[in-house]
Each structure stands twice: as structure tokens, then as C-alpha cells.
Simulated assay, not measured.
Amino acid sequence: MADSRHRLSRQFRVSNGDGFELKHVDPGSTDHAEPGGKQVAAAALAQGVERMAELQDKLYAQDRWALLLIFQAMDAAGKDGTIKHVMSGVNPQGCQVSSFKAPSAIDLDHDYLWRANQCLPERGRIGIFNRSYYEETLVVRVHPEMLARQTIPPELVGEDIWQQRYRDIRHYEDYLGRNGVVVRKFFLHVSKKEQKRRFLERLDNPEKNWKFSAADIRERAHWEAYMDSYEQMIRHTSTERAPWYVVPADHKWFTRLVVADAVIDALESLNLAYPTVSEEARRALAEAHQQLLEE
């Protein structure tokens, strides 16, 4: 993985979204990767996973910070695989994954941040959101009929509702940061051409048929609307405290490398350490040690 002076992931970090345009990020890019491509990346990822495990152990022991990782993407961009490979070395005891699908009737009777709030990681843990409250500025924006199902009083649903939600989210993530929850957000940016190839692979391979849904094709028909919504989302909710990483996703090995580097960067920024033991506790440990020797 990249050292702290020149991290791979920082090339794709958006801390201030003013003027951000999605077209400036090539989904097929592997820029800044070490020479050697896929094979070298596999070794680097293994090294990164090992480093992440060390840091997570300190995060858990220190019990002061929490890390929230949010993943957003179009279908077949590789969210599940990225989470699986990047977090493969993390102790399950200190990590929790929440997948947000269509909201239930109970969810719809609450504000749109309610269900996400129930799944925030505890101190000392890493929480992963596979999709998140950002769906409220994405799929709900592309399909405004979904907004009607939320039974919000009509007088509260105006033309500026998306700007209101961006503002709410910025404030929410700032609140989380001020309470020790470090937020890092990843948009896995896959091209329309590569999505088509992956869809066809799922259809042609019986072992991957289960991954495909007819709804995937219906959503693909709204590609341009989604790209505009993602661009607006990144533009209005990228902050220094809760940055977005716009990660090229046409090459899975590169996607995983960037995400792993970003997670390590976030954990290293916390100056994690194992808790120090007081003199009184040390005396108690010495007594316990002596008692064991005398058995």
C-alpha cells in the first residue's frame, strides 16, 4: 500500500465538491497504481489487509473512535466484492455490515435517517453501509413517485427538497464526526459499457444467474439521470470531515486497492494505540502472575 506521504486513495478523494464533475473521473482508470497491474495489486492488497487488521485491533481495544464506511454505486459496480475482499482480514467481532434495501412500512413512518441511525457502529468498531441514506437523494430523486410513499406533509415537499436533504446530511455527518464517528464515503464509478459486460456475464453463467434481477435493466434505462444525481450528491455532500472517494470501478483489483488504502489512511489518522495500564492495574497483574506461578 502507499505510504502516508503519497497515498493512492488521495488521488480520488473529494473533500470539497464545488465544481465537481463526474466526467473528469475515468471509470477505467488505473492511474497511480504500482507497475505490474493485477498481480502486484494482489500482493499489495494482502499487505493492506494485514495492516488494516492491526489498526482495527487497536481501534477495538482503545474503544474511543468508530469508523463508518458508506458504499454507493450502480448495480454490478462491485460493492459486495469490494467489501468482501477489503475487509477479509478484519475481526468480525469488531465489524458490522448493514445493507439498505427498499424501506419497510415502519421505515416509511419515520424520517429518512431513522433506519440508518439504528445501524451506526459502536465505539471501537467499523460499520459498513452497503447503500445508505444517500438513496434518498439518488433513487428517490430519479423516481419521484417514491417520495409520495413517504407520506411527508405535502407542504414540506418543495422544489428545494434535494438541497434540504444535502444540507441535512452534511449536518448529520458533521454531528457524527464531532461524536467520534469517522465517516468515509465511496462511490464506485463503473462505466455503462462495463456494467453491460457484467450483466451479460451474470446471464450467461448459470452460477451467477442469482445475481441478476430484471429491475437492474429497468434502472439501467435511467443511467443519465443517475449520473446527474450522483454528481449532485458528491458536489453537495463532500466535506473535509466526511469526504467522498470517487473510485474507478471498471477494474475490480484497482477498486479494492483504492478502497483499502483509504480505510487504512482513515485509521492511521486517528493515532490509535493500545490502552495504557495504570500502576495499580500493573500491580494487580503482577499479583495474578505470581499466583499462577505458585499453583
Rank of each mutant, 00 (worst) to 15 (best):
I70S: 01
F71K: 02
M74Q: 13
M74E: 09
A76Q: 09
A76F: 14
A77K: 11
A77E: 05
D80K: 07
G81E: 02
G81P: 04
G81S: 07
H85N: 06
V86F: 00
S88M: 08
P92M: 09
V97W: 00
A102T: 14
P103E: 05
S104A: 01
A105M: 14
I106H: 15
D107M: 11
D107C: 05
D107T: 07
Y112L: 15
Y112R: 09
W114A: 03
W114K: 02
W114H: 07
N117S: 12
Q118I: 06
Q118P: 02
C119Y: 12
L120K: 08
G124E: 00
G124F: 01
R125L: 10
G127H: 01
I128R: 02
F129Y: 08
N130K: 08
N130W: 05
R131F: 02
E136I: 07
E136M: 12
T137I: 15
T137W: 15
T137A: 15
L138M: 10
R141E: 05
V142K: 13
H143P: 14
P144Y: 15
E145W: 08
E145K: 14
M146V: 10
L147P: 07
Q150A: 13
Q150H: 15
T151F: 15
P154M: 13
V157T: 06
V157E: 02
